[in-house]
Design a protein around this nucleic acid. Sequence first.
DNA 1: ACACAAGTTTAGCATTGGCTACAATTTCAT
DNA 2: ATGAAATTGTAGCCAATGCTAAACTTGTGT
Lengths: 140, 140
Amino acid sequence: MPKSQNRSNQGSHSRTRSDHATELAEDYVEAIAELCESLGSCRVVDLARHFEVSHVTVNRTVGRLVRDGYVKTEPYRPVELTAKGKRLAQMSSQRHAVVLKFLIALGVSQSVAEIDSEGIEHHVSKETLEAMQKFMDKNI
Amino acid sequence: MPKSQNRSNQGSHSRTRSDHATELAEDYVEAIAELCESLGSCRVVDLARHFEVSHVTVNRTVGRLVRDGYVKTEPYRPVELTAKGKRLAQMSSQRHAVVLKFLIALGVSQSVAEIDSEGIEHHVSKETLEAMQKFMDKNI
DNA sequence: ACACAAGTTTAGCATTGGCTACAATTTCAT
DNA sequence: ATGAAATTGTAGCCAATGCTAAACTTGTGT
Ligand SMILES: [Mn+2]
Ligand SMILES: [Mn+2]
Ligand SMILES: [Mn+2]
Ligand SMILES: [Mn+2]
């Protein structure tokens, strides 16, 4: 028998920890894509306002994203996504949208759904995401 | 007008960060209560096994819980909850149970629901929890 | 042209939460 | 009663993610 080709024999808490390790990357690439779309470019200050953290925190986080290949930067220039970053942004933002619409379909108010979905999205597996989608399809 | 009596005028990302700050405390008090129930007492090694981390990590985390008043310990003795810890455990474990049952009611498999609910529970507001409960009531 | 404002980076700090290696204590078996 | 095993604690390491203060670069307005 194969020696566990995927990582699915980890416990729940290990999975949650690993979700948290990728969470910031997901939120950043999503925000960078949105801000590039809406403002034409994405600056460190824009991200700082978006996440309500200091611009210094953004700077170092962006540094990790560069290290991990999601983002490219030149000194004192706006932040841009790599192809890998765009793929992650696409995936994250679709999943985020499904979770948000699902909560609203469940009867949660728009403002609370927006807040809760920001945390929940990162812990929703493919199977759960499909169940949410199916629920929305069923309920028109 | 009141100067915002609660913290609800924070953005989504701030809320998510604050959820994460209390997450470990919630999981630990929940686990301590469960282990005390099932094993008669809760030792550091039991928690290490439960969370799949080293006993040293458990030790320092328990130290923070003591500092924050959730737990009491004596050297080389099992870990016990304070009244405050029991209240948090009760609250967390109820919320966790609702989220888990909700995912199962949605059609997610038991094993995946157990994993996903471990992360999702900490980001579910009162309003969303009530919506989940209402959904389960409606669907028998 | 050049000063000032806006934006960015660097330096340096703290906390959390992970680890290994080793020391100390308690518990258990003989 | 005593030595080994299990458990707990300490020392010291690391990465991530938050901060302020200060330096540096870029871009704007006159
Ligand atoms: Mn998101
Ligand atoms: Mn998010
Ligand atoms: Mn949990
Ligand atoms: Mn989370």
